[in-house]
Amino acid sequence: MVNPLTHLGEMPVADFLRDYWQQKPLLIRNAFPDFVSPISGEELAGMALEEAVESRLVLEQGDEGPWQLRNGPFTEEEFLALPRTHWTLLVQAVDQWLSEVAVLKKYFRFIPDWRLDDVMISYAADKGSVGPHFDYYDVFLLQAEGKRLWHQGQKADETTPRLEGTPLNILSEFEAQNSWLLEPGDMLYLPPQFSHWGIAEGACTTISIGFRAPSASTILEDLAAELAHGLPQHLRYSDPGIAPTSTPAEIDAESVARLQQQLGAWLQQPQNIAQWFGAVMTEAKYPDTVALDAGEAEDWREQLAQGAELVLNPASRCAFCREPQTLFVDGESFSAPLPFAERFCESHSIASGDVEAFPELAQTGGVIDQLVSQGTLIYPPEDY
């Protein structure tokens, strides 16, 4: 079992979270000593040929203009036609396909699992990059093969000028405040909105461990729909005890303040919010990938009795809540005993002992059957 990192270089994780997380960048030299890349550039290109894998190519000078973006899947002929320099291949969610990559996520479990997005890997030819840009999420950039020169610039937002004529989020103005050359095993942490620009020095591979941060607009839109669905019809705007008005056409400050107070009361639904939050934060990024394994382990009872186990699909997500006691998996909530939910979310596996301890979960049509039928629980891959 891989344990979470306790130090980032020589810095204790607690110090990092206090002083750097979501605050300022940090370069961690030799974060992973003697690091060996779990995937080569050729293997990454092979993944980009597959329909089910999300991939992109960025060419600094494409045939359609500067900073051209192409979306996969690609063909071998397209790769053979690429120039010798100044291009980058990016493949999303490689952790969902390769257990050697998925294991890297376990090192970062000092951050809640539900905050982690996926592991993206990029391969760049010499001088390849995706241009100066910024993201709205935290990311650890682990150098896997070769060298990449990273420039870190100013904080940016939606008002920062962009380069026109490209679908990419390229900043038209960028001034480096710090520059670092990363070699295999080195890692750079970047908080949200810090602009950055990574340029390959020779061919190189970089692993990006990104963390999700839903926007306020997304949260409010989704939460409002969830809460509205559960609120009774008798809860309405009310204004008992109001004084007579001399301006009946006016929406006065007192009415607005009254509405704000009532909205606050309607939002005080802690169980509903916990249920909504658990479901939203465990939604699979690629549900179709989970569905590919639906029903794969239908004979799980017999297999577990013979010593096998079920494991969480690499494309799935899970979490639990203590109050109310709930297990969340792939955007769905399940009633499950807290000890089981805790153990499953920690180990991502189910063995015969779990069935013996919690027989109600093994009933026909029970939680385990449901998770198997939707592809969330599978037999361990050969390289698991």
Score class of each variant (00 low, 15 high):
residue 359 P to D: 10
residue 265 A to I: 11
residue 169 N to M: 09
residue 242 I to S: 15
residue 122 S to F: 01
residue 136 Y to M: 11
residue 218 T to L: 14
residue 72 G to E: 00
residue 167 P to R: 07
residue 10 E to C: 10
residue 119 V to H: 01
residue 329 V to Q: 06
residue 176 A to S: 15
residue 21 W to D: 02
residue 258 R to F: 03
residue 330 D to V: 07
residue 294 A to R: 08
residue 243 A to D: 11
residue 339 P to C: 02
residue 175 E to R: 13
residue 319 A to W: 13
residue 317 R to Q: 11
residue 231 L to C: 10
residue 167 P to D: 00
residue 167 P to V: 07
residue 78 E to Y: 08
residue 351 A to D: 15
residue 311 V to H: 07
residue 97 W to D: 00
residue 172 S to H: 01
residue 21 W to H: 03
residue 132 P to T: 07
residue 46 G to L: 03
residue 320 F to W: 12
residue 321 C to L: 14
residue 202 G to V: 03
residue 198 G to K: 03
residue 214 P to N: 03
residue 71 N to M: 14
residue 11 M to G: 09
residue 104 L to Y: 05
residue 256 V to S: 08
residue 197 W to S: 02
residue 141 L to Q: 03
residue 96 Q to E: 15
residue 2 V to W: 03
residue 160 T to H: 03
residue 166 T to L: 05
residue 353 G to E: 14
residue 86 H to T: 13
residue 73 P to L: 03
residue 273 I to N: 06
residue 233 Q to T: 12
residue 28 I to N: 00
residue 356 E to Q: 15
residue 227 L to M: 05
residue 210 G to P: 07
residue 366 G to K: 09
residue 231 L to I: 12
residue 155 K to W: 13
residue 237 Y to F: 15
residue 159 T to K: 06
residue 260 Q to N: 13
residue 334 F to R: 10
residue 115 R to G: 08
residue 2 V to Y: 09
residue 290 V to P: 01
residue 24 K to M: 11
residue 317 R to A: 12
residue 284 A to H: 07
residue 141 L to M: 12
residue 335 S to F: 09
residue 329 V to E: 07
residue 31 A to H: 00
residue 87 W to V: 02
residue 171 L to K: 01
residue 83 P to Y: 06
residue 326 T to Q: 11
residue 278 G to Q: 10
residue 133 H to L: 03
residue 280 V to I: 13
residue 143 Q to I: 00
residue 353 G to A: 14
residue 238 S to M: 11
residue 165 G to M: 02
residue 84 R to C: 07
residue 166 T to F: 00
residue 252 D to N: 14
residue 354 D to N: 12
residue 288 D to C: 08
residue 124 A to M: 01
residue 250 E to G: 06
residue 102 A to G: 09
residue 252 D to W: 06
residue 172 S to C: 03
residue 40 S to Q: 04
residue 120 M to I: 02
residue 55 S to P: 06
residue 380 P to R: 04
residue 291 A to T: 11
residue 54 E to W: 01
residue 134 F to S: 08
residue 160 T to N: 04
residue 160 T to P: 04
residue 111 I to Y: 10
residue 322 R to M: 13
residue 196 H to D: 04
residue 347 S to E: 14
residue 160 T to M: 01
residue 122 S to G: 09
